[in-house]
């Protein structure tokens, strides 16, 4: 019996130094786990955060991105809807995004300040020119969702 040489060839790009091309094309099957409720809610145009259930805990505000357990006391948190209007805390227009970015170069990224929320959610501005302090409202990609955080965006309010 003789085993044939492999039929797949790894391409040589340079001779000296000897450089080859290693292709990588597989998938990761990633679960959002307990945060999945946030992503499911985006399809219903809802912005869901979490709040600590422990009455003794000092943090009464909402967390967005949500957390399943409170980092201050390790107690379980409960889900609650976050406000859908807020203000731009900071922004940047990304001219040279990395590979995998699903939006065009020139998309403004923003951090949004929401009342009653202890974090400043990172997101993107779908319409208008960003400015610190400008009022924005949430919009949701319900038609053809990407199933990522990009399904949430903001427009001037």
């Amino acid at each position: 019996m003789s085993i044939p040489w492999p039929s797949t060839v790894i391409e040589q790009l340079e001779q000296d130094p000897f450089v080859i091309r290693n292709p990588k094309t597989w998938s990761h099957f990633h679960s959002y786990g307990g945060w999945g409720r946030f992503f499911n809610a985006l399809r219903q145009s809802k912005l869901m955060g979490t709040r600590c259930r422990n009455r003794a805990c000092g943090e009464k505000r909402l967390w967005l991105p949500p957390r399943c357990e409170c980092p201050d006391c390790w107690h379980e948190m409960e889900w609650a809807e976050a406000p859908q209007t807020g203000r731009v805390f900071t922004w940047s227009v990304v001219r040279y995004p990395g590979e995998l970015f699903k939006l065009p170069p020139g998309t403004p990224l923003i951090s949004v300040e929401l009342e009653g929320v202890c974090t400043k959610l990172m997101s993107w501005l779908k319409e208008g020119e960003p400015q610190i302090g400008m009022k924005v409202r949430a919009v949701f990609n319900t038609q053809r969702p990407t199933n990522t955080i990009l399904d949430l965006a903001w427009v001037p309010a």
Partner: peptide
């Protein structure tokens, strides 16, 4: 692609998709 790899060192669930670019996170 290198910038994407570096941006894997941001939160992949809630932030990396927003630019896949660390310079953008510093720009904010």
């Amino acid at each position: 692609v290198g910038n994407s790899y570096i941006a894997s060192a941001a939160c992949k669930d809630f932030e990396s998709e927003l630019g896949w670019m660390y310079a953008a996170y510093y720009a904010l």
